[in-house]
Structure formats: C-alpha cells, structure tokens
C-alpha cells in the first residue's frame, strides 16, 4: 500500500510551521510500513487532484495568497470533482479561506474564492490570536486516549469566517474560532476539513491525523485499518493544552 500526499503551494503557503502537518502524515505512514510520497505542487505545475490521496493547503501572508489566487481558480473544476469523489482535504487558515466564496477586504472589495465550500470571510479589525480548544464530534470514539474528541491548536487570523449551509469542524471550547462570535470553528464537508488551528495541528492531534489517513486508505485501497502506535508524547502535549485552557 502507498499514499500520495499533495502539498499545494508549499513555497507560498507555509506560515506557522505548516510543514509539521506534512511531517506528521508522513511519519505516521512510515511507522506503519505504508509507503508515502509527497508531491509539491506550486504555480503553473499540472496536477490532477483525483489521482492524489490527501491534499494539504496551508496558510500564507496576504501577498502570497494574492500570488496564487488565479492559479487556484484555474484548478477549480478538477478540485471540485476530486472533493465530490471523497478526496481528503485539509485546509488551514488561508487554505480554509480560499476554499470559500469570497474574502472581503477592509476596504470592502470582495476577492472571490474558489467557491467549493459555502463559507465567506470578512476582514476584521483585530487579530484573533491564541491557543484554541474545540469539541469535534466527527472524531472517532477513543476513550482510552483521554482526548474526549477535542482538537487543540493555535489561531492567528484577522479574517472572520462565516458558514452557510455547511457543517463546522467543531464547537469552540476555548478561543475565538471562525469569527469570535458564533462559537463555531472550521468547516467539514464530505472529506474536506478546514480550520484556523495551526500549531501545527496534526502532530498533537494524532487521532485526527489517523482519521485523514484512514479516509485516504479507504478511498484508494478500500481498507482503512491502521496499526496502533504509541502516542504517549502526542497525547501528553494534547492534554497539557486542554487542561491549561480549562483552567483559564
């Protein structure tokens, strides 16, 4: 068995240790003897997303997001058909915003997104910064992990995202979430997961990482069982932050 992970725009969208998410996916495959290949797709490089197993899109600064916008729009139809086919996608921060309908700047201009998810983002006047904990009910039951279906990470965004007819990734336990108002965080549509949580996200939320891998294996190879790994360090990092946030 092998998996192909597509890191989209790694040169433009790699703020906040985003490569940690790729490292996490890769290592958890290798430790289980699953072959894994990471393709870096950037501007003007051809790619058919239907042939990939996981798509990762990280965050970038405003300038860098501006540089890739036209390129991403050219890929829209292909991306949409891969998404409808069940491609697991993880979009973080800018990656979340770009998948939506538009981004409205402080001046009121609307920069259209690729419009794959029913969400939109409005520039806010203050940055939403800090550690976050969310309750994410889509995560598998894992009572022995002690994580209680939580995800932890760090957010840092000025855009405020609002959801239309689409599910959030989870509900905010501590932190701001999509906009600091409606208590929702991220987005979940089919196998697309969008979130503002970096930190990076996957290393200290190993159950979420494994869910992405299971979905990818299921779609490509029709089987999704994963060998159990020793996650003591990962869960220690996870529960430290959950407990610290609970005490605030």
């Amino acid at each position: 068995m092998h998996l192909k992970i597509c890191h989209l725009y790694p040169d433009l969208m790699d703020l906040y240790g985003d490569r940690g998410n790729i490292i996490s996916l890769v290592q958890r495959c290798r430790w289980r003897g699953i072959e894994v290949e990471v393709g870096q797709i950037s501007l003007d490089r051809q790619a058919d997303f239907r042939n990939w197993d996981i798509l990762f899109l990280g965050g970038g600064s405003d300038r860098e997001q501006g540089l890739l916008y036209e390129d991403l729009c050219r890929r829209r139809d292909n991306l949409l058909s891969a998404v409808e086919d069940g491609l697991p996608v993880l979009g973080i921060c800018g990656g979340l915003q770009l998948l939506g309908k538009y981004y409205q700047t402080a001046a009121g201009d609307r920069i259209p997104g690729v419009d794959i998810l029913d969400l939109w983002t409005v520039a806010g006047s203050k940055r939403l910064i800090g550690n976050v904990c969310i309750q994410a009910d889509f995560l598998p039951d894992a009572p022995e992990s002690g994580t209680d279906k939580t995800l932890v990470g760090f957010e840092n965004h000025s855009g405020q995202t609002f959801l239309g007819k689409v599910e959030p990734l989870g509900r905010v336990v501590k932190g701001f979430g999509n906009n600091g108002m409606d208590g929702l965080e991220g987005v979940h549509y089919k196998n697309v997961f969008g979130t503002y949580l970096h930190g990076p996200l996957l290393p200290k939320n190993p159950y979420f990482t494994d869910l992405l891998l299971s979905l990818a294996l299921e779609r490509r190879w029709g089987k999704s069982e994963l060998k159990v790994l020793d996650d003591n360090l990962e869960l220690a990092a996870h529960t430290y932050m959950v407990n610290r946030l609970k005490q605030q």
Partner: peptide, 9 residues
Amino acid sequence: GRDISWLWD
C-alpha cells in the same frame, strides 16, 4: 512568543 509552531520550522 505564545505561538510555538516555529519549532516545526
């Protein structure tokens, strides 16, 4: 710096 994600870089 409250954000420690830089460790991954």
